[in-house]
Amino acid sequence: MSQATGARFEFHNLTKVFGGLVAVNDVTVEAVAGGITGIIGSNGAGKSTVFNLISGFYKPDAGQVLLEGQDLTGRQPHEIAAAGVGRTFQNIRLFQGMSVLDNVRTALHRSLDYNVFHALLRLPKIRSEEKRAEEAALEALELVGMLEAKELTGSSLPYGLQRRLEIARALAMKPKILLLDEPAAGLNPGEVADLVNLIRSINAKLGLTILVIEHHMDLVASLCQKVFAMNFGQVIAGGTLAEVQNDPAVLEAYLGKGASHA
């Protein structure tokens, strides 16, 4: 089922130059529609830059980003998010001081059908719309198993739960694709195992196309149907994890010259 419903997402020949440094060089990735695609590579390989290009935080110097054939290249971050690209951040970015519920509820603003004048006058419409928002927020929290924590302050939670909350917030927007930027960063092994189960269940339940950047090979191995390896801003291999792991270019990048002959 998931294969049929997931959104097609791809980007072609993405390039970004900072000063004289080519951070991302001619990168082309086609995500598995309705599946989980991984981008791996060492620190500084350009993975996070790729995400920032896709989600509009950086403007690409060249290339094209396509969601279901719709060209998102060079649009503003909020427009890209509105078009259906949800994301999380490597260093979790929750809204400080907001409750767990409000963190998620904030992400529902586009689906709430009232304008500034309704809000200023607090017309009866607001009550019913806000009620709907709360239900939708609770639904998203249930999806990540955080219903009991709804009243707590988001930023006071343990790291693993903050990560879940960030995912719930992104899911509340009902995105067509979800970008996870090193979701296992800073988590302990138990939390990583929980996270793997969570991502898998979201993928299965929603048929959502997911793109994940990760160092953590266990996570990549247990989740990703397709993997792209990056080095010095370029994609050096793509395919199943086994194919990528045995690719001479990858072995050379990770283990040094001569490794592929061993």
Partner: peptide, 19 residues
């Protein structure tokens, strides 16, 4: 809520489609 989101983390606000 949008305003508070902008105040605490503008980047995250943009990521949830807040203009």
């Amino acid at each position: 809520r949008n305003a508070l989101a902008i105040k605490t983390d503008e980047l995250a606000a943009k990521a949830i489609a807040v203009n």
